[in-house]
């Protein structure tokens, strides 16, 4: 548990997601009824899913981070049984990061076309015209597989854990 500014942060494992979020939502002592945000994060060597919750019992935002998801096959239980509105946000996280939300009835791509194969917000997906990378690395096509070749620059590792 960490506290900074007006945010309280807790970190949980994927297996505990359902229990933790259900308790936060249903328990009359917590009553976190508003799901303010659901975001995927690629830290470079693992995936995270971040929930921001709001409750009238506390002035703070609660940030629940599901950590250490396998980068090759990230799986989290869906929270659509608590918040129906999480459905599209989970679709977005799936579309952008390839995170699979087990139990979501409609886990399709939401922005990219259905035949698209890569996950654009992963850190090893480089923009074709990314000016911050040296020209020697050449231009990679947007649709290239998302795993980078050995010769290319390593993934930008996060120091923000």
């Amino acid at each position: 548990m960490r506290q900074r500014h007006d945010q309280t942060e807790i970190r949980i494992a994927a297996g505990a997601t359902v229990d933790v979020l259900r308790t936060l939502h249903d328990d009359p002592a917590f009553r976190f009824e508003v799901l303010a945000d659901l975001a995927g994060v690629d830290t470079g060597d693992s995936m995270q899913v971040v929930y921001h919750l709001w409750s009238e019992t506390t002035p703070d935002w609660l940030r629940v981070i599901v950590v250490d998801l396998d980068r090759e096959d990230p799986r989290v239980p869906s929270t659509t049984f608590l918040w129906k509105g999480a459905e599209w946000m989970e679709r977005e996280a799936y579309d952008m990061f390839g995170i699979i939300f087990e139990g979501n009835r409609d886990l399709r791509r939401v922005y990219m076309p259905p035949d698209y194969t890569s996950f654009p917000l992963r850190k090893d997906f480089f923009l074709a015209d990314d000016a911050s990378r040296s020209p020697a690395q050449g231009v990679r096509h947007m649709e290239q597989v998302h795993a980078p070749a050995e010769s290319l620059a390593p993934i930008r590792r996060s120091r923000a854990r």
């Binding site: 945010q7 942060e9 935002w61 996060s158």
Partner: peptide
């Protein structure tokens, strides 16, 4: 290094 979350009330919501 750190994380920040800011929410505001826009004409359409949070």
């Amino acid at each position: 290094p750190g994380r920040a979350w800011a929410a505001i009330e826009s004409p359409r919501g949070q």
